[in-house]
Design a binder for these strands. Structure first.
Lengths: 260, 260
DNA sequence: CCCTCGTGTTGCGTAATTCGCACATGCAGC
DNA sequence: GCTGCATGTGCGAATTACGCAACACGAGGG
């Protein structure tokens, strides 16, 4: 057993990163950061100033507001090449899924308690689901998220379900731990997950897991569309389609062929 | 006059960011970071651990190495929407320039003493210049960089030229401050910058500045190709092409129409 | 098999670093 | 001008982070 992990975090770094993320959500001023983090204005200022000196933030000469430095983040992101590569690999499959289903196809990975959308092909219908890349959504109410959750070992899922904050977004969001647990078991059995207006009213999504060469689940692939087109009657048909393309993408990544 | 800026940086945050950037350049271990930053292993470990706790890094269960968390960076980058938008706006112009010139077209912005490539269209010839988005290159020896430098007020340029480290990459790299200063003056007069094998032997680049609606230079657009195709005879012709498309992009951004 | 070396990880005391207070400065609005 | 409000900056106090030292563990060699 590996030694149990420490829990003492470096406070200044922790606060600095929090300030950085605040700046990414919109321009910030020392007073805002100070209030949000419960620290003194001067401390907040020094954190922001340090972030600026290291190139992460810029300061508007006139308004004195601190703003994120896009170029810096682009540079950092450029070094994390894997996801760009991902888009390249998955692009064809997303297009195929989009064209076959007629709906927006998207691909996401897990990041803490969220799914991050890392690639997509927006649907071409007048009414289509659309959102920016990099968007994050809760695991428990998105199809991609549930597909990822269901792929975990039972014990892990049980613990997560018990401790997670199951925020409600619509009347249909599953907020009861026990119900979510049963729901996820069914997802695993069926091989696909459905978000039935649990995040946005009028939007239904279907997703299936993607496996890598070690049969590990590393991402999820799915479609999102209006309930008027993804009807309950059509749902199984769409689900077959999603699972099929997900299996193809998994195969492309070298996953051992399980079923099909 | 605004109060003169402080110079005291928050040490822990500074070191933490340094550790983070090391991790982005490849997996790191506490001992590596400690040695590189001249700090104790335990300190390096705590920084890395904090970065992991906040989602920036992951730790391999087996090798204990810390590695960057791509999903986190994608999420952060997704919040900095401007550059993605940029690619959308500039995409058509890059394609146009690529098709007209037959060479790789690229767009970059300044980040400290570097140019960051934020969008490009690789040339389709068998022998074409190609590199990943997010790459950075020194200002003084790249065409994009020189186009950006030349757009500054004289005093700023003079100071920069005097204090910058003009590293040599090829025999043709300009490393003398006075010569670079004269060179940049000529760039401004002519309206375009040339990198004549100053970064890579056999590669010639041409670039021109992009102005926004306030006539501020915010980026540079250019082409890169082998010296066998971008010959000295053809250079003026290519330059006209680059300047023309740069002017079109500037106009698209609402820049006041100056010449042409 | 033991011994050594190197590394990840943690406890602890010290001292350096950071924090918050207080103030100077600048700016907007009455 | 005066008042309110925010940014930016000394400075002393003490919290915080740092380095030392030690433990656990694995690799490699004798």
């Amino acid at each position: 057993m590996p030694p149990r992990r420490g829990q003492q975090l470096v406070q200044s770094l922790e606060r600095g990163l929090a300030a950085l993320e605040m700046a990414l959500d919109g321009n910030v001023r020392p007073s805002h950061v100070a209030e949000a983090l419960g620290i003194d204005r001067s401390t907040a200022y020094r954190l922001l100033y340090t972030l600026m000196a290291k190139g992460y933030l810029l300061q508007d000469e006139r308004t004195r507001e601190f703003t994120s430095n896009p170029a810096k983040f682009f540079q950092l992101y450029g070094k994390v090449a894997t996801l760009l590569d991902w888009s390249d690999v998955a692009g064809d499959f997303l297009t195929r899924l989009r064209d076959q289903s007629g709906e927006t196809a998207n691909l996401g990975v897990r990041q803490a308690n969220n799914v991050i959308y890392i690639a997509h092909k927006p649907g071409q219908a007048a009414l289509s689901v659309n959102f920016a890349l990099g968007t994050s959504r809760p695991l428990h109410c998105s199809a991609l998220g549930k597909a990822l959750l269901a792929a975990q070992p039972d014990a892990v899922t049980a613990e997560w379900v018990a401790s997670a904050a199951l925020t409600s977004y619509t009347a249909k969001t599953i907020t009861e731990p026990s119900r979510l647990k049963r729901h996820l078991e069914r997802v695993r059995v069926e091989g696909y997950a459905v978000d039935d207006e649990e995040t946005f009213a009028g939007v239904r999504c279907i997703a299936a897991p993607i496996h890598d060469h070690r049969a590990q689940v590393i991402a999820a692939l799915g479609i999102s569309g209006p309930t008027t087109r993804i009807t309950h009657e059509q749902l199984p048909h769409f689900a077959q389609n999603v699972m099929q393309v997900a299996a193809q993408l998994s195969a492309e990544l070298g996953a051992p062929v399980a079923e099909l």
